[in-house]
């Protein structure tokens, strides 16, 4: 058995050689950083060996009030996005399906997919203009209705909504594709049969279209739960400012600030390790739950 395997490896040696660059990349940029996470249990030394300190940094972490704030912010922002944004692409796809005029539908699709491909820096640039109290389109509209202009970006009460709505703005079109494809995939004979039986449009929606969407809906929702520890680093970094940071400071921005700006490497790594472990557990469990329920997993 062993001999056969060795022989097979030898015959396939060219294949392994072809895989060598990948092995190098993965070792350097995945394996080494994962190994480097051990820094959470060591005191970082610029000169000489790092000193093992056990759970010291985790104890500090859990007694740091700021950490509970950023953990709460992360969960609140993620939960808002998860629940409020989830139905939007589905409704968007259902609405789009009502239009059979090729040009109208195509135009809506072409424009609404675009934001998905823009960086958060560019989106922030667009939104700053959009929400500008002096010239922005949103405030022009507010003024038109006789209300005073508002600066949503520096207001603690509105900033999380800005994150949620800008995320929805970015993903509504793109995330609707998968649902739209499923709707288009429904066999026309089902509709014909239903109409022949005297079904109205409401029956069609609730008895034929929605049941087809059940599997992708459940899969996507469950898998999104798995990523709840990622509240949107790039987005927050670009939308944050001094007035609102306490409301949208998340674990990722905290790790960046404490680790790379303040240079507290071990402490930041401990915070990140905490986040990563929860993340792995969530992704793995949601993957298996989804597999069980819908036979579709995360990969």
């Amino acid at each position: 058995m062993m001999g056969y395997k060795l022989k097979k490896i030898w015959t396939d040696r060219v294949l392994y050689l072809m895989l060598l660059p990948a092995a190098v990349f993965f070792t350097l940029f995945h394996l080494l950083p994962i190994y480097g996470m051990k820094l959470a249990f060591f005191d970082y030394r610029i000169i000489g060996e790092d000193v093992y300190v056990g759970m010291k940094y985790f104890k500090i972490l859990f007694s740091t009030p700021v950490f509970s704030t950023v953990l709460a912010n992360t969960l609140i922002i993620s939960a808002m996005k998860l629940i409020l944004i989830f139905p939007i692409p589905i409704i968007f796809a259902l609405m789009l399906n009502e239009f059979h005029n090729g040009r109208f539908r195509k135009a809506i699709q072409v424009v609404s997919y675009l934001p998905h491909f823009l960086s958060w820096v560019v989106i922030a640039g667009i939104w700053f203009e959009f929400l500008s109290p002096s010239t922005g389109a949103v405030n022009e509209l507010i003024k038109l209705f006789g209300f005073p202009a508002r600066d949503f970006l520096t207001d603690k009460d509105t900033i999380r909504w800005v994150l949620v709505i800008s995320e929805a703005w970015r993903s509504i079109g793109w995330d609707s594709i998968i649902f739209f494809a499923v709707i288009l995939g429904v066999s026309p004979s089902l509709y014909e049969a239903a109409y022949a039986d005297g079904a109205n449009r409401w029956h069609i929606l609730t008895r034929i279209v929605l049941p087809h969407l059940y599997v992708p809906m459940v899969t996507i929702f469950i898998l999104n739960v798995g990523f709840i520890m990622n509240a949107g680093l790039d987005q927050v970094l670009n939308f944050t400012n001094v007035s609102v940071n306490s409301r949208i400071d998340i674990i990722d921005t905290y790790v960046y600030r404490v680790g790379l700006v303040n240079g507290e490497y071990s402490f930041a790594t401990a915070a990140n390790l905490f986040k990563s472990i929860i993340g792995v557990v969530l992704v793995l469990s949601t993957h298996f739950i989804s597999k069980k329920l819908t036979s579709k997993g995360a990969w």
Binding site: F26, F29, P33, G36, M37, N272
Partner: peptide
């Protein structure tokens, strides 16, 4: 391909375990 199964396990680990910015910066 001999060794495919363990390689795939590694890939899944790499996909879901984010070591974070500090260890990456160190590397």
């Amino acid at each position: 391909l001999v060794g495919k199964a363990p390689l795939m396990v590694f890939l899944i680990i790499f996909m879901i375990l984010e070591p974070g910015i500090v260890p990456e910066y160190m590397v």
